[in-house]
């Protein structure tokens, strides 16, 4: 599916990955996040190749260094907004500042007043903003977003994209967003397109 993908990101980089459905955008993000293994090649994040780690070490790697935002947010319906954000804090190293950071992140994404609400009580955009806060609660180096606005209407999508951009700037997190929306991709400094498995640079 992916052939000859060479990609280097620095701190604070934001890159949009575009391409038609089935071109491998999600696969690329899953490989970058060590959720899937490439048939050849390697991935290194701050000197660590997650595919040389054991499964528990990989899990800790993801917990510590990578944040995921999925197209359908994947909030746990049985937990509140605040609890959803704190799920990554249940494993890995103990982080005493974690709960406080979770609340701050929710404030940042505009949901500071909805801490005890359940996902069923939120709109699509609000759910996605909770997912973004959850992805950031461990201060990851890399934030991977797979069609984060795919299920949202235009204005909500703009809102979410704005949040992502702000997060990248303020937290200096490397951001990779897979999208098929040109408007969303335009908000990011770098822009690539996957064509026949090859990565082609469009901007940056």
């Amino acid at each position: 599916m992916l052939r000859g993908v060479d990609l280097t990101l620095k701190k604070g980089d934001g890159i949009a990955v575009m391409g038609p459905s089935g071109c491998g955008k999600s696969t690329l993000l899953q490989i970058l996040g060590a959720l899937d293994r490439p048939t050849s090649g390697d991935v290194t994040l701050e000197g660590v190749d997650p595919f040389t780690l054991t499964e528990p070490e990989q899990a800790r790697f993801r917990n510590r260094s990578v944040g995921f935002v999925f197209q359908d947010h994947c909030l746990l319906p049985q937990l509140t907004v605040a609890e959803n954000v704190m799920v990554p804090l249940m494993v890995g190293e103990e982080d005493t500042m974690g709960p406080e950071r979770a609340r701050k992140l929710l404030d940042e994404v505009g949901l500071g007043a909805r801490l005890n609400h359940r996902p069923a009580e939120l709109s699509g955009g609000e759910k996605q903003r909770v997912a973004i806060a959850r992805a950031l609660v461990r201060n990851p180096k890399l934030l991977l977003c797979d069609e984060p606005t795919g299920n949202l209407d235009r204005s909500t999508a703009e809102q979410v994209a704005g949040v992502l951009e702000r997060v990248r700037r303020e937290h200096q997190t490397m951001l990779v967003v897979a999208t098929h929306s040109v408007e969303i991709a335009a908000r990011f400094p770098r822009h690539v397109e996957l064509v026949d498995g090859l990565l082609e640079w469009r901007r940056g």
């Binding site: 528990p56 510590r64 994947c74 746990l76 799920v87 990554p88 494993v91």
Partner: peptide, 16 residues
């Protein structure tokens, strides 16, 4: 399965 995918993504090991 969605819940499992999420937990795996946020760093839960399979054993956990």
């Amino acid at each position: 399965h969605d819940e499992a995918a999420l937990l795996r993504a946020v760093g839960f090991t399979t054993a956990e």
